[in-house]
Design a protein around this nucleic acid. Structure first.
Length: 317
DNA sequence: GTACGGCACCGAGGCTCTTG
DNA sequence: CAAGAGCCTCGGTGCCGTAC
């Protein structure tokens, strides 16, 4: 039985009806996204995945997110029953084979990012999209066809005018794939700042960059005081920023101390995307993805408020 | 003629399997 | 268990057919 955006599953004869979110894989990086999606569904909500690893199982349980997977792992916690199973191995039989999805690979994610930042771009030509997103012309067609298949882009009229459909659903898919497929390509390393709260001193906008994550949301939304800084910066500016603020390279596995900065490549172009963004602050959807990725409960709350703002912005189109 | 979208080919990178 | 080879997937380049 479908509801607006998913399915209802009734469990045996218990009379309990779950809203179901289907995930092909459930990796740690996606924890925040998954929990946020489940919270938005009519309770009780259930994650159905092909495989949940033991670490992920613990974290989902801590977050109160119920799940079952194809390898026999589960966390179900309703008044009538309690089930927690973890540690069953993934097998090739259980894992559904990965279907290649052009729309949510790194080039697709860049293009979708441009669409969500400026929905008008969907109606432009392939060449304009390529220019604005930094994705090659040849890749645009693949991504658009995939988006059409999945129902996120619709063409209408003889002229083939395009528009975004279910933009918030697209945002969910984007925020979910971003940490896994695009972010690993962007990381330029962790750096140690000289002060304990480097975001008070460092101004990435002087180098064409901006703050993401907690620092960004703290400036959009007074509620959250940042604990960790993420900067998006053009790759060629890294040396200049490091020299200006006397940053030291620290190991990638270093603890999340407040003076530790994560610096990522800024993959979009301000001039080409029509962004109504605050200077020095990353586009809202990127901040949203950054917050979800942490899985931290205060960040999830901030992300929910940001989600509402993004929804208003996109619906104005 | 020009701008547009589709498509085929190619190179790079990553993953997996096998062998020592 | 480690290292190397091979395969597969993905994204980019560039060309071609078409429509205006």
């Amino acid at each position: 039985m479908p509801y607006s955006d998913g399915f209802i599953l009734e469990l045996g004869n218990t009379g309990i009806q779950y809203s179901v979110e289907l995930k092909r894989w459930a990796q740690q990086a996606n924890l925040g996204t998954i929990v946020a999606q489940l919270r938005r569904m009519p309770p009780p909500a259930l994650l159905v995945a092909d495989y949940v690893n033991p670490n992920m199982a613990d974290r989902l349980r801590e977050a109160g997110a119920q799940f079952i997977d194809a390898a026999g792992n589960a966390y179900l916690n309703e008044k009538a029953f309690f089930v927690f199973v973890k540690g069953n191995r993934k097998t090739s039989v259980h894992a559904s084979q990965r279907k290649t999805s052009r729309a949510f690979n790194s080039s697709g994610l860049k293009l979708v990012f441009s669409f969500l930042t400026d929905p008008h771009l969907v109606g432009e030509t392939y060449r304009r999209m390529a220019e604005a997103s930094g994705v090659s012309l040849g890749a645009i067609g693949w991504v658009l066809n995939d988006l059409k298949d999945k129902g996120y882009v619709r063409e209408h009229g003889k002229k083939g005018a395009r528009s975004l459909e279910n933009a918030m659903g697209l945002l969910d898919r984007w925020a979910e794939s971003f940490p896994e497929k695009l972010l690993p390509e962007l990381g330029m390393g962790h750096f140690q700042a000289t002060s304990a709260m480097p975001w008070k001193e460092i101004r990435p906008e002087l180098f064409g960059g901006c703050w993401g994550g907690e620092v960004a949301v703290s400036r959009l939304d007074n509620y959250l005081s940042p604990a960790q800084g993420t900067i998006y910066l053009p790759r060629e500016e890294l040396k200049n920023l490091v020299m200006e603020y006397k940053l030291r390279k620290s190991p990638d596995n270093s603890p999340n101390a407040s003076e530790t900065l994560q610096i990522n490549e800024k993959f979009w172009l301000d001039e080409l995307i029509n962004v109504n963004q605050t200077p020095g602050i990353a586009p809202d959807i990127l901040v949203y993805a950054d917050l979800l990725m942490t899985g931290d409960s205060r960040n999830l709350e901030a992300a929910e408020r940001l989600y509402a703002q993004i929804k208003n912005r996109i619906q104005e189109y």
